[in-house]
Structure formats: structure tokens, C-alpha cells
Write a protein that binds this DNA or RNA. Structure first.
Lengths: 234, 234
DNA sequence: CGTGTTATTGATAGATCTCAAAGATGGTGG
DNA sequence: CCACCATCTTTGAGATCTATCAATAACACG
């Protein structure tokens, strides 16, 4: 498969580069596809490459010594991953797995270093993007530290719907396979508790559920659950 | 007070700059001191300046709409704060308060932008530093998501002792006033639970307590509590 | 139509929060 | 120098959320 410049149009880290620079960037890029379950990189391995997702969805997870898993991030089209590790020269903080057929563009670490040294806007863009990620993590951390499970799940679902919601006839459907276990690993709880919460919401018409599927039917109601201290159960 | 180049020696973001560059950096800097309780910037305000702490200790906290507070970071000498916000052009994510008499060096946002555009190593350093912060946050998030309170407190105390521990006759003392409430806000729990946990540890000789004071007497034992799934009570 | 994965649901135990009150501690002003 | 006050801390009892244990059910795939 050949790559052309249009691929880089929406990639934030290369924003503001002129045509010549873009061509340099592209000349060092490689294309790589992943089938569901395949992984791009593994936790604690030295970072060797930096990815931009073109199509599909990748999940970045961290595994604890006790075997608990935490989902750090779901990567959507246009987003990059492995960036902080390659740019900063660290080991990968987690494992990146494809949750559906995915296509990526890849740069080696050496290529990235060349590009950053040569085109200064790249480093500046990276600072912006990392700053934004940082804020997102701070938000999640604050939620984990101060909110009950139900509200955390609500916030998480709202974010997922905003970033990966596809308009369906009955609401906003998360457009990739998302298990109860995944949600649990994003919110610091167990799949059992997630299941109970989602089913209670389904009763009230807030969501619609399927196997590895969630459709947000009433995002107003979900927002109310996310914001209100009380359960407003009634 | 006059500033001289030695002040910048240990500041990571200006590492690798030549002497002339360092002088440019310094010429745009300003000195500012804070008494305990005074703040450098406030949550959600537009970021106008970027700080490096010379002496003392600052605390960056985030307040939720319900009035819960979360401690994002304790800043020690040599560290910078307000960096991500200024470099990325965001509002400050939290409020920076002095917990003891502190001295800082300050750059305005405009100055920072000038410097970053002119001296490319600065942006690269920023990427490194943000990457490292990111990893730290991921660690805390994982702890919040998967560990019980006691282990989280243990991990937090170990980190504090490593970064701000002063050798005392009876162990490592955290060298700034640190209340039970502060620890609770770092670990996502309540001051009551922290108090109970610390007192239990004191009984076992792991720590020694005072008003706004913690001394780690047995960091091995603390490490064991932090790592072991079970409480290993006795 | 098996078979493995994913999801639901009930019962129970336990960790933590919440509510409540009292006890230290250190600083300040008279 | 002492009394007072604001803060910080300890401690108890009870309520509740949530994890854990256990079993069954639904689903997709070959």
C-alpha cells in the first residue's frame, strides 16, 4: 500500500508543516495493519516506533504485577500513540492492542528524532498534545479519587460517546467492541459492578446494551448521573 | 534580589543550552517569593506565567465542583510548575499554593514563547519532562484504580520520602508540613482513614507522627506494605 | 451443535466513608 | 507569660458501597 500526503492532513503532531517538510515526514513513514488482538507494542519494551492510527481502534493497557489490568487510553483514527515514549526516550508505558481491524502509519524512533531536530514545529506540537493528554489524565485521576463508581462509569461513557459515538437510530452507539470488562478497567471497578450499573440504566432507558456494545440513548440523563452527587434514583 | 546563571543550572527545561542562550533566558526572568498560604496561580485562570521553584515547597491542587480537593503535585526545589499550561496555551489545571516560605523564578508566557521559538532544545526538553510527568500520573492512576487505601498511602509516602525526605536521627522525615488531609487528597481517601492507617503503622514502628509531620522509620516495612497484596497484618 | 467467551444475577463479607465528638497542638494577643 | 482560638488529629459506631464468591445464562463462532 502506498501512502500519500492526505494521510497526514489531520495528524496534529505534523500540523503547520509546509509541503516539503510533509514530504520528508512521509518519506520516512511505513504502513502497518493490525488484526483484532494483535499488538503494536508491549509494556516495558524499549520504544522503537511511533504510530498514527488511520482506521480502526487500538487500546493501550497497563498490567500490574498482581494481574490487574488498567486501560490507559482508547486510540481513535487520527490520534497518535507511543508518542510520549518515543519522543521522551522511555520504555512503552503499556501494551497497544487492536480491538478491531486497524491501519497505522509508523515512524521509527530514529526517523522521529531526525524529524524533530529538523522541523521545530513538531516538538512544539508535541508539547501541546502532551499537555492536552495530561489534562485528560488529571480529570480521570480526580474522578477516581473523588467519585463513586456509578458516576465514574457515567463520565467514562460520556467521553467515549463524544469521541467514538456513531449516530444510530436509537442513540449514540460506541463504534467499537467494548466489553463490560473494558469499562471496568477504565473506571477502576469490576465487570460485575459495571454490569449491574448498566442494566439498571437500561431499565430506565438511559442506555441500550448488547454483547460488547453500548448505545447511549439519553445522554441528558447520563450527564445528570455524572454530575449529580446524589444518585437521584427515585 | 538579583538572579545569576547558577540558578538555572539544575533546571531541566533549560538543560543543554549554551551560555549565551542561558543569558537570554535569565534576562527575561523575574524573581518572586511566596509566604505560606499564598498562591502563584489559580485553577482555570488563563496561564500567564511559568515558574521554577528555587527554595521551599508548592502544592498544586484541583478543586471539584462539590468541594473535594485533589493534590496533583507537590513541587520541590529545581522543579518547574505551570509549564504544561503555559507551553500548551491552556488554563491552569489547578491552584499552586506555597506550603512554606518559597522562592521562584518566573517567566511570562510571551517570554516563554520567544525562548521556545529561538532555542529549540527547550521544546525538546519540555517533551521529555512532560513525558516523565505523564508516566508518574499513569502510575498514580493505576494505583487509584487497583489498590486498596493502605497500599496507596504506602506508595505515596514512599514517593514523598524519596523526593522530599530529610535524613533525621530516627529515619527519613518529610521536609515540609504535610497534614493527614494532604495525604488523603493525594490518595483519594479521607483524613480519618489516613489517620487510622498511620497510627496503626506507628504502633508497629514503621513511622513516627507529629502535627503535619511524618517520619518514615522503616522504609523496608513500608515497601512491603506497598507491594504485598495481603495486609500481612502482624 | 459443542465450546469458549461474555454477561447477568444473587448472597455475603469487608473496606471505607460518614457522622459525631473530643483531644492535641501551636500561635497570638492581651 | 498565660489564656484562648483556630487547626489539626484521633477515635468510635454505624451505614453503605463495592468486591468477592458462585452459579447460571446468553451469545458468537467454527
Amino acid at each position: 500500500m502506498t501512502l500519500d500526503l492526505s494521510v497526514l492532513e489531520n495528524v496534529a503532531i505534523f500540523k503547520g508543516l509546509d509541503r516539503a517538510a510533509m514530504e520528508s515526514v512521509l518519506s520516512l513513514a511505513r504502513h502497518q495493519a493490525f488484526a483484532p488482538g494483535e499488538y503494536a507494542f508491549s509494556q516495558d519494551h524499549d520504544s522503537r516506533a511511533f504510530y498514527v492510527l488511520l482506521k480502526g481502534r487500538m487500546k493501550v493497557t497497563q498490567l500490574t504485577v498482581e494481574g490487574h489490568q488498567v486501560v490507559l487510553h482508547f486510540v481513535g483514527p487520527g490520534e497518535m500513540f507511543g508518542c510520549a515514549a518515543v519522543c521522551g526516550g522511555f520504555a512503552y508505558p503499556g501494551t497497544a492492542t487492536a480491538v478491531m481491524q486497524s491501519e497505522t502509519v509508523v515512524w521509527t524512533r530514529a526517523a522521529m528524532e531526525t524529524l524533530m531536530a529538523r522541523f521545530s514545529p513538531i516538538a512544539l506540537n508535541a508539547v501541546h498534545i502532551l499537555g492536552a493528554r495530561m489534562r485528560e489524565m488529571q480529570t480521570r485521576m480526580r474522578e477516581l479519587a473523588t467519585e463513586r463508581v456509578e458516576r465514574r462509569v457515567a463520565h467514562t461513557l460520556l467521553r467515549l460517546a463524544a469521541s467514538a459515538g456513531r449516530r444510530a437510530d436509537n442513540g449514540l452507539e460506541i463504534e467499537f467492541p467494548l466489553s463490560r470488562q473494558d469499562i471496568a478497567e477504565m473506571t477502576g471497578t469490576t465487570l460485575h459492578t459495571v454490569s449491574r450499573i448498566l442494566n439498571a440504566w437500561q431499565e430506565r432507558g438511559v442506555v441500550e446494551l448488547g454483547r460488547q456494545k453500548v448505545v447511549v440513548r439519553d445522554s441528558r440523563a447520563l450527564g445528570a448521573i455524572a454530575e449529580h452527587p446524589a444518585n437521584l434514583g427515585m
